[in-house]
Simulated assay, not measured.
Amino acid sequence: MTDNSSSFRRPAKPRHKPAPRRPGLPPEGPVLLYGLHTVEAAFANKARKRNKLYATENAQNRLSERGVRIDVPVETMMPRALDRMVTKDAVHQGLILEADPLPAYGPRELKGARLVLALDQVTDPHNVGAILRSAVALAADAVVTTERHAPEEGPVLAKSASGALDMIKHVRVKNMARFITEMKEEGFGCIALDSDGPASLEETEFGDKTVLVLGSEGKGVRQGVREACGTLARLDMPGEIRSLNVSNAAVLSLYVARMKMGL
Rank of each mutant, 00 (worst) to 15 (best):
T2N: 07
S5G: 08
R9P: 00
A12N: 04
K17R: 14
P20C: 03
P23Y: 00
P27W: 07
P27H: 06
E28P: 03
L33W: 14
Y34H: 13
V39E: 07
A42D: 07
F43L: 04
N45Q: 12
N45C: 15
R48D: 01
R50Y: 09
Y54F: 15
T56Q: 05
T56I: 09
A59E: 13
Q60M: 13
R62C: 00
R66E: 15
V68P: 03
I70T: 09
I70N: 05
R84V: 11
H92E: 08
H92L: 10
Q93C: 03
E98N: 03
E98H: 01
D100P: 00
L102C: 03
G106I: 00
R108C: 03
E109N: 06
R114T: 14
V116C: 03
H126E: 11
G129T: 11
A130R: 15
R133W: 08
S134T: 15
V136I: 10
A142W: 03
E147V: 11
P151L: 12
E153P: 09
L157H: 01
A158K: 04
K159G: 09
A161P: 10
S162W: 02
H170W: 15
N175E: 04
K184S: 04
G187F: 06
G197W: 15
E203G: 01
E203Y: 01
T204M: 00
E205P: 04
V213R: 11
G220P: 05
R222Q: 09
G230L: 11
T231V: 14
D236M: 02
G239N: 12
G239K: 05
V246L: 06
S247I: 01
S247C: 11
V251Y: 06
A257W: 10
A257P: 07
R258C: 12
M259I: 13
K260S: 14
K260M: 14
